[in-house]
Design a protein around this nucleic acid. Structure first.
Lengths: 182, 182
DNA sequence: TCTTGCTATGCAACGAGTTGCATAGCAAGC
DNA sequence: GCTTGCTATGCAACTCGTTGCATAGCAAGA
C-alpha cells in the first residue's frame, strides 16, 4: 500500500465515468494527464490487477464496426478503498525538474552551448504557452456553468494547472533574461 | 541514453563542487533536492556506474575521527557528456500530483471525508509555507551579492522554486475555499 | 555506561514505469 | 487497391526508484 497511486487515479476517473482501458488511456492523455501520467500498457496491467482484487468489474460491450470493449466500473470495495486513501496524508512528491538541472549546468558550457540552451528554453516556453491556451479554452468550454460538486472540484484542479502554467511562463522569461545577460 | 537523468544532476553538482557520495546525498536533501530527488542508495549505485564508465574519478581521503571518504570529481569525458546533454531537447516531465487526485476524489466521499481532506490540505499548506520561508531565507543568505555566472544561474533556479511555492499557496487557498463551500 | 545520532558506505529484493512489439478490424483518403 | 490512422487489447524485457537492512567508528548527552 505504498506507491500504488495509479490505482487511485483510475478509481477517481472510473467513478467520474465508467469506461474501457482504452478510454481511460485517452483520459490520461487529456484531463487526468494534467496531474497524473500513465501509458495504456500500465493502465491495462493495473486494471487487470484491480479486477482480480475486486475493486472494479468489467462489462463486455459488443460494438458493431469496431472491436468489443470491456467497460469498467468501480465496485463498493473499490470505492471504500478510495475513500480511505483520501484520508491518508499526502505523500511528499518526487520532484524531477530536468530544465532546472540544465540551467545550473549552463555554467559549465561555452557560449554556443548557452545559445543552444536558450533556443531549447524558447521552444519549451512556446509549448507551455500553447498548453495554457488549451487549458483556458477547456475552461471556457467545460466550466461556463457549474452544476454540481464534482464539476466544482474538477474546475479548481484545472485552475491549479492554469496558475502553474502562468507561473512557469513568467519564470521562463526570467530564465531567458538571465541566460541572455551572462 | 533515455532516462539516465540522475547522472546529469550528479555531474552538475560535482562540477559545482566535488564531494563524496554522502555529501551528494546531503545536497540532494537541500538545494538540488528542490528540483531532483534521490536517496543515498540510488546515488551510490549510480556513482559506481559512473566511475566504471569513466565520467567521474574518486580520490580516497583519510579523515581522523571519522570514516574515510571517497571524494568524486568529474572527468573530461564526464564534462563533455553533460555539455552534449545540455543541447538535447528537454523531455516532457512525468507529472504526478497526488493532491489533485484527492481533490477530484472528494466528490465521492461524505462530509466527514471532505473535512478530513480539508485538514490534510491545511497541513500540506503549512508545510509549503515553511518551505517558502526557508527558500527566502536561503536567498537572503546565499544571493545577497552575486559574483559569478554559476551563482546567477543557481539564483534563477531558486527564484523558480520561490515562484512555484507562492503559486501553490495561492492555489491551496483557492482549494480550501472550494472545499469549504461544498 | 548506555543510548542516540551523525558520518560514511553499501547490498538485496521488490515494485513501478518505460520501451518495443504484436494483433486485429474497420474507416477514410489517395 | 493500398496506405494511414483509429479503436481496442495485451505481453515481455528492461530500467529506474523504493524499502529494508547492515556495518562501523566516533561524539555528545543522560
Amino acid at each position: 500500500m505504498r506507491g500504488m497511486a495509479l490505482e487511485h487515479a483510475i478509481l477517481v476517473s472510473l467513478l467520474e465515468q465508467p469506461g474501457s482501458g482504452y478510454e481511460l488511456a485517452r483520459r490520461f492523455e487529456r484531463s487526468i494527464g494534467r496531474f497524473w501520467t500513465a501509458t495504456h500498457q500500465q493502465i491495462y496491467r493495473v486494471l487487470k490487477r484491480m479486477e482480480a482484487d475486486g475493486w472494479v468489474t468489467a462489462e463486455e460491450i459488443g460494438q458493431d464496426g469496431r472491436p468489443d470493449k470491456r467497460s469498467f466500473s468501480v465496485t463498493e470495495p473499490g470505492r471504500s478503498l478510495l475513500v480511505e486513501w483520501l484520508r491518508a496524508p499526502v505523500q511528499p512528491e518526487a520532484v524531477r525538474h530536468e530544465l532546472a538541472v540544465k540551467i545550473r549546468g549552463a555554467a559549465f558550457t561555452d557560449a554556443a552551448g548557452r545559445a543552444a540552451l536558450i533556443g531549447e528554453v524558447e521552444r519549451y516556453r512556446a509549448e507551455h504557452e500553447a498548453l495554457l491556451a488549451r487549458y483556458l479554452n477547456g475552461e471556457k468550454r467545460d466550466f461556463a456553468e457549474i452544476n454540481d460538486d464534482g464539476q466544482r472540484l474538477q474546475h479548481v484542479v484545472l485552475r491549479g494547472g492554469i496558475a502553474y502554467e502562468r507561473m512557469l511562463l513568467d519564470w521562463l522569461d526570467d530564465v531567458l533574461g538571465t541566460l541572455r545577460a551572462l
